[in-house]
Write a protein that binds this DNA or RNA. Sequence first.
RNA 1: CGGGGUAUAGCGCAGUCCGGUUAGCGUAUCUGCUUUGGGAGCAGAGGGUCGCAGGUUCGAAUCCUGCUACCCCGACCA
Length: 491
Amino acid sequence: MAKELTKREENYSQWYNELVVKADLAENSAVRGCMVIKPYGYAIWEKMQAALDKMFKDTGHVNAYFPLFIPKSFFSKEAAHVEGFAKECAVVTHYRLKNAEDGKGIVVDEDAKLEEELIIRPTSETIIWNTYKNWIQSYRDLPILCNQWANVVRWEMRTRLFLRTAEFLWQEGHTAHATKEEAIEETEKMLGVYAKFAEEFLAVPVIKGLKTENERFAGALETYCIEALMQDGKALQAGTSHFLGQNFAKAFDVKFLSNQGKQEYVWATSWGVSTRLMGALVMAHSDDNGLVIPPKLAPFHVVIVPIYKTDEQLTQISEKALEIKKLLEDKGLSVKFDDRTTHKPGWKFAEYELKGFPVRIAMGPRDLENGTVEIARRDTLTKEFVNAEGIDEYIVKLLDEIQENIYNKALKFRTENTFKADNWEEFVDVIENKGGFVSAHWDGTAETEEEIKNKTKATIRCIPLDSVEENGKCILTGKPSKKRVLFAKAY
RNA sequence: CGGGGUAUAGCGCAGUCCGGUUAGCGUAUCUGCUUUGGGAGCAGAGGGUCGCAGGUUCGAAUCCUGCUACCCCGACCA
């Protein structure tokens, strides 16, 4: 029993920390707050990237790359934006090192001080809008629909693998449009892309909504988000899409000549998802045995484990196993055949469960005789013997079923953990004793939101896009409200 | 950044209070034999700058000072 995992019920956050490390997703690095994403974890991230990248391209976007360094002066051009990020920026001040005079090690060469400090991007709006200024003259140059895959740095006080690290990987889309309507449409379209990705690939149901002023992106007029519920009843923001209005166009003086012959400021959006999605994946589906990865994001769909006593049996089983592997690969599946003789079957079973392989095939001498294989599902932990004939069709169907089951399970959990509260007592009771989403009335003021946060640690996750008009009273102040908003404690 | 905790073999820990042989234990690793349908058994072997840097002392894992990293709780944040 080399890799005992803490049970979720005993200590959820310890379970998460251990699982991320033990399943080989990531580990802490020598640099404070920064993680090493290990090959297995990175393989999942690459699957996410591939799916998202395709969705971006399918909606007309192209990839580009902008610098890691941003001149300090760019940063101060948009007031709200500076305010939002100033406290967590890493700054480059020098460009050279030299040997220390006392001969002990190496020091910063004070003579190599930069004229202007460079900020390591916490996000790229400023450098990109400085660039777009040169790209845009007329309405014919619009829209610009760029995305970049990059790393960013935000100097966080308290970090956790994937959920909040000082450096993280993400994609940031930055678009420029001739009209407000088109920019808003783009913002909403990309939110839809994220929601579709979350539900179809991550198998995590999400609520689409608008952020309140408090939670809005610094520099945006409106921030849209998708919010997911984790198994411990806390919410996780899984993606954001911002309508930036003309804030950055004005800050960087980006104008275009309209088809009416008028100089106008460009309308902007930006949108992003990060390696935080890895945290969502872990916390939404996994169990006390380890990861549960939805088939559409699993680096391997199937592992085949041979069971044998003699070398001769192994040879025979391998032959059949490789046949099956080939059949499955012809269906576009990725399959691992683990014929290592250094580990026993039981060990392998536990290992692949920990790593979340959706399907395991075990084949032994009895199966060879009967023409069967044993198939184990990771999501339900059930096993059955299946005829080896037609196994490829069977597994393809099974993987679809698993993907769907994982989603339905998460949806059921969210439904069962979403509550309505109509007064303060009910609200506090749910937040403190049950967790989950709480749908409640709010008077619309930042002060009330702040006070609720101070009293209960719950924040407004979003104003759901599909929330219906309904007359009610704010749970804290009793003032009139026309809509319910969604509260939760959040990551 | 504030409060608390931790740092000893790849991993998990004991030893630290009260300084004193060659720093232990479990697990993992290596070798051999037996095993193989849910984390195998026996025998043997290898593996340590005791987080880092100073200091006290005849002598430091142990006492003192500083630093670093990680974990938990707050503030901040995606």
